[in-house]
Design a protein around this nucleic acid. Structure first.
Length: 768
DNA sequence: TCTTCATAGTTTTTT
DNA sequence: ACTATGAAGA
């Protein structure tokens, strides 16, 4: 096989690719061609005669796996490439768990609970135990359980672990162990695993069944792990077990980019790789091919402030480039405006797809979106609630889940009364209670209400039976019809679409669209498979694929020339010509939660490092003096991290308010009166004084005397007024009520119908 | 049992 | 500003 591709690598990359006789650790600085090393290494292994199906590569996202597979396909052909095992830990081992499920007491059709499923289960258990849900917060419990599972502590070992019990006692939540026990029992009864279980049960499988481990050890002749700095203990141990005989392992990562410790990632995995595999070779990729020298140097000067990194010197031989521009802006609105403006200017030379706006939290996207929309800049948001998290989609998927696995209690609870069938919470509670006390599943009770003595009247009983009769006929069709046929039939029978069709409010229309889009996606998935290898996709196949998909994995749409908006976390592994990092303020970035611990602060700093190193040519940083958060306007200070960067790489603002000084002076007076409408004006591109006057901004809301007069007037708003809302567009004020911060208006919008708006928040411009 | 309204709590990041 | 929960009314 042709090996000339090796010439496309630099010295250290080549060494890393060619060494395959033992474990290796590749420390890959940002932008140093890490993916290139991985793909070339796999191509090289294939050229050495290792069969594709015996190479296992574990990536951080499904998308990364897909892309890598495609790149390898270009080198060695699709026929070979598609036989490679490539995917996330979760998707790879869920496949193996489905194959080996029997021995663990699950069926191969087990459901994967997402975090909202497990949270709701936790809530139920807390309630059943009669605990106070203010003290036993679902999130906190979930974290505790997740932490335990990531460290391979089962419920049983949790109960026996005095350290954990003591910690819980000190945190005034001594009953976590009980909750965990019941939680695990319920999951098992529901034939369900949560995300952490996928790793936990893989470990249990390998630990307790040496013959099965032996099979996979033998099968996977070479294991590669990408983003190794973000693996947790459970993942570390799976890998360790798989390669314990041959040690043919290559892990790639960058300790400076470890940003997932909140999810249990353990930076020690990479730092102590040498201890685990003493004979390992370590390769360092230090030349950055992505960014300009200034960006690399700025990032280096930042990350130097962290202690305990692996020694390395990332450098760039690219152009020196521009230094990082820092913007001081007045508010979050102003920030949106400033960023949109800057993008507009640079756009003369770069396509929109070359830009990214990165932020610490998803909630920051709103204002930015608005500013971009006003400027007609196309954008795409990653993250936030993904398609598969939307209510109607989750409902439909829950119907699918229930048909595939009728024991799936969370799915059952979710859809038993969607659309409304007169089965309320009391009935559901009775049903669950009945099932749990007799140690059977809710589905068993539904299947034989009399036998289990469910205490409901005959009317309710018949409603329940009716629901069961919607689901059960499909169970026998699971391997008869393909995913699309069965999915369509279930949606039809569920009555979910007919409900959405009832009236044509925009919400319902969008629900209908979403459900149709889901069916379309299933259809495409079926066709793709058929083309690929002629196999039939059943509903269960689709579902197992989809439960581990995230936003990152979304296939690109037709129009790709858009600005990307995403969290810094989501940007890991990506690169853009121009990067805007917004919201660089204390308590936001670094987040308020990280301030108390040096360890967390260092992780935040690494996060900032990741953000900066996404940039190829220019990097922009902004911080606002005030920001609207949690329904309130807060004053903020610039992030300490800005000071961590050597100032010679920064173009700092000459003075505060610099960014607004070149703006129409008329607006200045309104900056201090933060009633959003005036800011709306400032974020509009090219507002002429004329157009400004034609829409007078709503002034600060003061309480107007609520005299008995029918026609009220609040802040220049009167009934019948024509107004414009940032999101809903134009509409007419139907009525006004309340006063002060409670002032409300009912507005009839042309696009979305009537809305009851709280004037304190609503951004209204009076047109007439 | 369902719908509507009011209130309280809340936002870190995600497989 | 948004959701989740609870109370009251239908």
């Amino acid at each position: 096989m042709d090996e000339t591709f090796l010439n496309e690598l630099n010295k250290s990359q080549q060494e890393a690719v060619l060494f395959n006789d033992g474990p290796s650790l590749v420390i890959a600085g940002a932008g140093s061609g890490k993916t290139r090393v991985l793909t070339y290494k796999i191509a090289y292994l294939l050229s050495q005669g290792i069969p594709a199906e015996s190479i296992l590569s574990l990536t951080f996202t499904n998308k990364a796996a897909k892309e890598m597979k495609e790149r390898i396909a270009q080198m060695v052909g699709w026929q070979t490439s598609r036989r490679l095992w490539m995917g996330t830990f979760h998707s790879t081992f869920s496949r193996i768990l489905r194959a080996e499920s029997d021995i663990l007491g699950f069926t191969s059709q087990f459901t994967i609970y997402d975090s909202s499923d497990s949270k709701s289960l936790i809530k139920v258990i807390v309630k059943e135990l009669g605990l106070d849900d203010k003290i036993y917060k679902a999130n906190a419990i979930q974290n505790r359980i997740s932490f335990a599972k990531n460290n391979l502590i089962t419920a049983q070992s949790y109960r026996a672990n005095n350290n954990l019990l003591e910690t819980d006692r000190q945190s005034k939540i001594p009953q976590v162990a009980e909750i965990y026990t019941i939680y695990a029992r319920r999951c098992k009864a529901a034939n369900a695993m949560d995300f952490d279980d996928l790793l936990l049960f893989t470990n249990i499988l390998f630990r307790d069944h040496p013959e099965i481990l032996a099979k996979y050890k033998d099968f996977f002749q070479f294991v590669l792990v990408d983003e190794y700095q973000d693996t947790n203990f459970a993942q570390y141990l799976i890998v360790k077990r798989l390669v314990e005989d041959h040690h043919r392992l290559c892990v790639v990562g960058d300790d400076a980019q470890s940003i997932y410790s909140f999810r249990g990632a353990n930076i020690d995995n990479i730092l102590s790789f040498k201890t685990t595999y003493p004979e390992c070779r370590i390769f360092k990729l230090e030349q950055n091919y992505r960014s300009t020298q200034n960006i690399v140097n700025a990032a280096n000067s930042l990350i130097e402030k962290n202690k305990g990194q692996i020694q390395k010197k990332v450098f760039s031989q690219n152009a020196e480039g521009e230094i990082i521009k820092v913007y001081s802006v007045y508010s979050d609105y102003d920030e949106g405006f400033t960023v949109a403006n800057a993008i507009g200017e640079i756009h003369a030379q770069s396509a929109y797809s070359e830009f990214a706006i990165l932020y610490r939290t998803n909630s920051q996207s709103r204002v930015l979106e608005e500013a971009l929309r006003k400027r007609n800049i196309p954008y795409r948001i990653y993250g936030g609630l993904s398609f598969y998290q939307r209510k109607e989609i989750k409902d439909v998927l829950s119907y699918f889940r229930l048909v595939i696995n009728p024991y799936d209690e969370e799915a059952l609870k979710r859809v038993i009364n969607v659309p409304a069938r007169g089965i309320g919470t009391t009935t559901i509670d009775k049903l669950m209670d009945c099932a749990h006390t007799q140690d059977v599943s809710a589905w068993d009770v539904l299947s034989n209400i009399l036998k289990y003595n469910l205490n409901v009247n005959s009317g309710t009983a018949s409603k329940l039976s009716k629901f069961r009769d919607i689901i059960s006929p499909f169970i026998s069709l699971l391997s008869e019809l393909n995913a699309y046929e069965l999915g369509t039939a279930i949606v039809k029978a569920s009555g979910i679409l007919t409900e959405a069709l009832m009236d044509n409010t925009p919400e319902n229309l969008s629900r209908k669209d979403n459900i149709e889009e889901l069916l379309k996606a299933i259809h495409e998935f079926c066709e793709m498979r058929a083309e690929e290898d002629g196999s039939t996709v059943y509903l269960a196949d689709f579902l197992s694929e989809v439960s581990l998909l995230t936003d990152q994995d979304k296939t690109d749409e037709d129009d790709n020339n858009r600005v990307t908006l995403m969290t810094v976390h989501a940007s890991k592994g990506l690169e853009f010509k121009h990067v805007f990092i917004v919201g660089m303020e204390e308590e936001l970035f670094p987040s308020a939660r990280s301030l108390s611990s040096e360890r967390d602060l260092e992780e935040e700093r690494r996060l900032f490092y990741v953000a900066i190193t996404r940039a190829k040519e220019t990097c922009h940083i902004s911080y606002a003096k005030s920001r609207f958060r949690n329904g309130k306007n807060n004053f903020c200070n610039p992030s300490r991290f800005i000071k961590d960067i050597d100032p010679k790489y920064l173009n700092l603002p000459q003075q505060d308010f610099q960014s607004i000084s070149n703006r129409d002076t008329e607006f200045k007076s309104s900056f201090f009166e933060r009633k959003s409408s005036s800011f709306q004006q400032t974020s509009m591109p090219k507002v002429t004084p004329n157009s400004f006057q034609s829409q007078k901004p709503l002034r600060k809301i003061t309480s107007s005397p609520d005299a008995m007069g029918q026609t009220k007037e609040i802040n220049g708003l009167h009934e019948g007024a024509l107004i414009e809302h940032a999101i809903f567009g134009q509409g007419t004020v139907i009525s006004l009520s309340g006063e002060g911060s409670d002032a409300r208006a009912i507005v009839s919008f042309d696009s979305v119908g009537q809305k009851n708006l709280l004037l304190k928040y609503a951004k209204l411009n009076i047109i007439e």
